[in-house]
Simulated assay, not measured.
Amino acid sequence: MAFTLFSSKNRIINLVLNDHSVRFVELKQTDPPAAQKWCERFLPPGIITDGKITDSDSLANILEECIDEWKIQRRQVRFIVPDPLVIIRKVSVPADIQEDEMKGYLYLELGSSIHLPFEEPVFDFYPLANNGKTKNLLLFAAPEQYVMEYANLLTSLKLTPIAADISPLSLYRLYHHLGYSRDHEVLFTVQFDLTSVNLCIFEGSVPLVMRQFPLPFNIDHWDVKHDNFNEFKYTGETEELVIQFEEILNEISKLADFYRFTLTNEKRDVTKFLLNGDHPMLPAIYDEIKDRFDTPIEMISLDTDFNKKQGSVPFTLLLSLGLALKEVQ
């Protein structure tokens, strides 16, 4: 499941951009694969906003510096489509549509029987149940304009985009690779970053429903240290963060209830939370979720995987690692 815009080979870097950072990981193609190189760069506010490039010149200049500093010139690159641009939607199509005809059928139906909140999407799909009359599919879509802005920018910097992915799938890929997944589980992933939160519920390896929420971010309320990796310390009013956390906890509860009561008619419930993200207060968020819900909660540990002679891979790079595993497993 990914946006199939490109073709692929090897020597690939794996790039994650969001409203406040640029991160990359390169895997050494061993068995099992090991992280060979990783770096991070802070993005000042206003360069990417809600996943959209708003200052392309500044972003190009920063990426050019990163490419030179990280020595990744003329490389192939996978990247994650920013969460605010992506939607996941369940759709039904006639059962007699063949798999090799599905893309064309969906393209023709977009805007008529299948409605999206944007025009000219790039999309992919995942087959679900088939009752003989109709087939259910999961449709993954994003505005082609904004996805191609990233691809074209990377191309202009002499990188070669070969694949675009979405963050919940990258996170789940790493989760599965490290042996955390269990049969018949319903996993609720919480990607809690500095400027946004992504919530996604998986049945097995299939992401059925996803919600994304921006977080207010005032750079004046944070002390940012720019070393090899960014360090953030909050200097504003604690009450502001408490309100933000409480709002997200309410959204987690709403989405869990939506899954239980609306999607499954009380037949299934979330069996585990998986917390990830780059928010500097992630341990406190973990404690809040653990106290609020009866459902077990887990965080991915890289203690024995990926951490080779090069040192420990920061937990902020889990998405990049999951993206790096694409087509490896």
Rank of each mutant, 00 (worst) to 15 (best):
L110G: 00
V93A: 14
F123V: 15
L116E: 02
G104P: 02
V77L: 09
M102H: 05
I88C: 12
Q76H: 13
L159Q: 03
P127I: 14
N130A: 11
I87R: 05
F118T: 03
W70R: 02
T134Q: 07
F123Q: 02
S92D: 01
G111L: 12
P127G: 13
T49W: 01
V147K: 03
W70L: 08
L59W: 04
S113W: 08
L159S: 00
R75F: 09
K71G: 02
P117F: 15
A95M: 07
K52E: 00
I67T: 04
L154M: 10
K133I: 08
A151F: 06
N152T: 10
R74G: 06
L106I: 15
D96T: 07
I97D: 03
P127T: 12
E101H: 13
D100E: 12
K52L: 10
A151D: 00
M102G: 10
P168W: 05
K90Q: 13
A151T: 03
L157E: 03
N152C: 06
A163K: 03
L110P: 03
P127C: 14
L138S: 04
P82Q: 09
D124A: 15
L63Q: 01
E64M: 13
I87N: 03
N136V: 09
R74F: 11
I53L: 07
V93G: 06
V86N: 03
E119W: 07
V91N: 05
I47N: 02
Q98Y: 06
